[in-house]
Design a binder for these strands. Structure first.
Lengths: 215, 215
DNA sequence: AAGGGAATGTCAATGAATTGACATTATTTT
DNA sequence: AAAATAATGTCAATTCATTGACATTCCCTT
């Protein structure tokens, strides 16, 4: 039982491997070498082997990797073999979009409920799921063993809601609010700061302009 | 004129600095030291100074940084002093959500149009903007000087659309499709792979479980 | 106006991540 | 069955990123 910590740099790359392997699998390809995968994914073969070896060897020397096996194993590492109960907090545009999106991406994510503090939305059906009042949230999380909360609410209320979630046993927060949450370290937070991402894009657009005009 | 390349690691942190500085500014705080900012943002003071110095000194020794000035300068670095014409391709849930989101985040992003290939959506108004048929997209991009395209379409059509965008002079793509685009290097792509992000979350939830149960 | 104090800018040291090289081991062919 | 081939697993080298330390500079008080 080896508990060496794996760097987040490696973890960040796993979903991408998973995606490519899934596609290869769908194409009926059974085996692949790190070099072939390297060509497709545009990363070094060395990095691919290094990454996989963090979890023990998945390949066979002289042969390569079995696509399906590797796909399954990476899925397990990512926790996709388990089911996760999930709620969405904030039934605005983004919350609704994600609710529908989950339909597509069902990999053990069970959409259990949706909450908002806008009475106009109470009872509105989104993907066969009624929007519930925010007041019911805490009890619901506790009683339904909710693992993951998706936060699509304005930043001013995000921290308070996060505290409530933590108190009621949430294990992970997928945070779309423009604020950094302050939760105990055993609670996992994955931030999706969309505006940050857009700013990175404008930086790079700008940078290229300047490079090519030379000033 | 120094054209030293700045690492993406640094760039990724700039929007976060920008966000915190904006908040400090709104609170009426005029000056701040790297140490104070370090305490608030939970990063080392050394990193803060190092990051800012990539762009030339913004501070004054013995005094610290002027919040408003620093905020403005980082904004400029990120290209937020310029306006960017933007379209959304894919008027599904996510596309609509982002259209509304742009309203909030107006920092020089001018929402110019929205496209879809579903006739049922043609003419539908989203933020006072009618959904246009996909066929009109290429001409529209060319004629309206569109800088940024937001791709919220299924992965199978994403690559084709990206090619069309490139042909018509797009400069950056904010890509929400689950596929890596293959564009010339002068075209900037910023990927938002939501499912990747969610998988990272489940990995970390899982990992913590295993750590605490010890197996 | 001058000196003390405070905080930057920057250099060096450390640490982390990536790449390269190759011995080892399994597969495949003859 | 043995030799040749292929590709992993792994170690070492390199590159990149972060942290620490401190001299320098500027502000602020007396």
């Amino acid at each position: 039982m080896e508990n060496k910590e794996i760097s987040q740099a490696v973890i960040s790359r796993l979903p991408r491997y998973f995606r490519y392997l899934g596609e290869l699998k769908d194409e009926g390809i059974e085996r692949i070498s790190s070099q072939e995968l390297s060509d497709i994914m545009k990363v070094t073969a060395s990095q691919i082997r290094q990454d996989f070896n963090n979890f023990g060897g998945f390949g066979q020397q002289g042969y390569g990797y079995k696509v399906e096996y590797l796909y399954e194993e990476i899925g397990k590492i990512l926790g996709l073999d388990k089911t996760h109960n999930l709620i969405i907090i904030g039934a605005g545009n983004l919350g609704q979009a994600l609710a529908n999106y989950m339909n597509f991406e069902r990999r053990g994510f069970l959409f259990k409920g949706m909450f908002d503090n806008n009475p106009a939305l109470y009872g509105k059906k989104i993907r066969d799921m009624q929007v519930r009042p925010m007041e019911e949230m805490e009890q619901f999380v506790k009683e339904n063993n909710i693992d993951i909360a998706v936060l699509t609410i304005p930043k001013n209320s995000a921290r308070t809601v996060a505290e409530k979630l933590v108190r009621n046993g949430i294990r992970g927060i997928w945070n779309f609010a423009h604020v950094d949450l302050n939760v105990p370290k055993e609670i996992q937070v994955e931030n999706v700061h969309l505006s940050d991402s857009l700013m990175k894009l404008t930086y790079n657009i700008n940078r290229f302009e300047q490079e090519s005009t030379g000033c």
